[in-house]
Amino acid sequence: MQVYWTLIRRELSSHFCSWTGYVVIACAAFLFGASFNNLIVALKAQATDRPVTELFYGTIYFWMIVLLAPPVITMRSFAMEKSSGTFETLMTAPVSDAQVVLAKFTGALIFYILLWLPSLGSLAVVRYYSRDTTLLDPATIGTTFLGVVLLGFLYMSMGCFASAMTRNQIIAAMVSIAGGAALFLMSFIAMVFSTQTGWEAQLLSHVGLIEHMKDFARGVIDTRPLVFYLSLTALFLFLTFKVIESRRWK
């Protein structure tokens, strides 16, 4: 357990002791700002009965953060250690492969969650100036955040997997962006199939990330997306573990 925490601390400090972490947070904050601006403009133009969280999290900016931040955060995790050679010192210390994979994943996830915290500030501003306590209820914000964190689980594990497969950070980021975007675009295919009733439509309805997020932003926790995100995360972490372990098969 001590090893696990030591590795997580190291992961986090590698983000915060260099520019990359701050640049990622700054870019995300900029996109939040744009998103916030959208929200204000929309609320000014016309009244809406949709929850504010849904407006806030249904924008293109939100998805840009979800799709672009995880590859940038995770691309270094294994690829950099491999290219600099520190992977060898790490794996010859008395640590297990599973500990390393889980610690890298947890470290990246914690950074991802920290990245989203400033968005709460925007919501607080809306709440303060609207003087309407019913506008934003904490439970809905909670479920929205749960959705964001679950997306983080999936995308971070995917990013770790991509990073473990190569020693080149750029390749890791590109693979992870491509995989993430492909999964995201399934939502649009799902929308096309939404009027049909065949098995394809049923299958696609379960992988529609946009639909899942809409539900979470409305305050609905459905177990199906929950299982979907957690099982895919477990799958990617298992694959990452196997890739790390594969040096023993060669």
Partner: peptide, 10 residues
């Protein structure tokens, strides 16, 4: 190891 890999940012 060979070439002495270290975390250069620490």
């Amino acid at each position: 190891p060979e070439n002495n890999p270290l975390h250069r940012d620490m």
